[in-house]
Design a protein around this nucleic acid. Structure first.
Lengths: 209, 209
DNA sequence: TAATTTGAACTGACTGGTCAGTACAAAAAT
DNA sequence: ATTTTTGTACTGACCAGTCAGTTCAAATTA
């Protein structure tokens, strides 16, 4: 019988099924929203019976919550890695910010559907997964806030900046620009988009080169 | 039910009912999303019978579409007015941008629910009101793009900036920062938030005061 | 080696409830 | 007199979640 009882190691088959369900759900929910997406649709897209969805997840909401946690986890890890890599390379905090912008763009480039879905749900209230979303949001934004705070400490950034608000604004800048990119000019290269945002970050919009 | 029949100075009774329905719908849909909000709820919140909803709007979707058109119309008008006012006052394009940031914040401050709902629906695909949304989005973003283009023409902005992407990024900056403000630090004043974003816009984040 | 057993994983028809939209007669407002 | 609103009742489609039964690969036995 082998103690394959799903703890830790996890059975391969089950894991594969879960993955298929995540992928199906992320696309459909990004397109239509959570409530407009049916469990039948998710199952069909994943090539699995409806019962399988409920064998693997307690409910539609739970499936969605785990999806959120998983996705934002990837983003957070990626942002952290970007910040740490510049630190290791002896770069300043501006460089760290710039690297995180790129990491954000790379993430959105790879998981556009997840990003859509995340943005669409983030500011809703009165939803079951509200608290999950807040926790997970905070983890990601905190990485940006951390870099800003360190920059203020080292004097690289003005101590007059509002860390929380500035972090939110930076995240918004990347998020909306990237979604615009994917939606309306998908032919642009990532480098192109990154360059435009870098310019904006460094206040090089106004005249002087 | 308050009757008070409101004298109807210029607006018909019908217009008043429509307004009540808009207000009820905007709050509920912002909280729960379109599909999770029922027509019965909207009617109840508006203090109106369900039949009245269908007497005034062809369907739930149509009610929502007209809501979108109406709301974004207000925003667009407000942005235009801000840009024109600075022009009249002899301000430069940076001032125009700054005034539009403020106008955006004022709008979000007054209609937070509408903003939530708008963001949540903007990047969805496969929805009935998709085309309405695109048209209406473009009208608003075009105002920002216009100012950027004029600034490039007058040499006030670098001609290397990507107008479309920069406009999207600016909109995103204001949108996300404002939603963060309303959600997590509602006690902050509008001036405070505006100052933080101005700083970011003008690249005054880095060290030197 | 082959036959048998086990149980986790999966299936899909079914149930109970929900909801958009309809119907319409009577009441209220203008 | 006409427009608008009300309230109640109804329909038919749709959908989240259930559950009795099936599958099959690995483990056990012979």
């Amino acid at each position: 019988m082998e103690s394959s009882s799903a703890r830790s190691g996890g059975s391969t088959r089950r894991e594969a099924t879960r993955q298929k369900l995540y992928e199906a759900a992320v696309t459909l929910i990004a397109e239509q929203g959570f409530s407009a997406t049916t469990v039948d649709e998710i199952a069909e897209r994943a090539g699995v019976a409806k019962g399988t969805v409920y064998y693997n997840f307690a409910s539609k909401s739970v499936l969605f919550e785990e999806l959120l946690r998983h996705g934002v986890g990837l983003l957070t890890a990626s942002l952290k890695e970007a910040a740490e890599a510049t630190a290791r390379a002896g770069g300043g905090k501006v460089d760290a910010l710039d690297a995180m912008i790129r990491a954000g763009l790379v993430f959105i480039d790879r998981y556009p559907a997840f990003t859509q879905l995340y943005v669409a749900e983030l500011w809703r209230t009165n939803r079951a997964w509200q608290s999950t979303l807040m926790v997970v949001r905070q983890e990601a934004v905190a990485v940006v806030e951390g870099v800003l705070r360190e920059g203020v400490a080292t004097g690289e950034f003005s101590d007059e900046i509002d860390v929380q608000l500035t972090a939110a604004a930076l995240v918004g800048m990347v998020l909306v620009a990237a979604l615009d990119w994917k939606s309306f000019q998908p032919e642009r290269s990532l480098d192109d988009v990154h360059a435009a945002l870098s310019r904006l970050l460094q206040g090089r919009v106004s005249g002087r080169v």
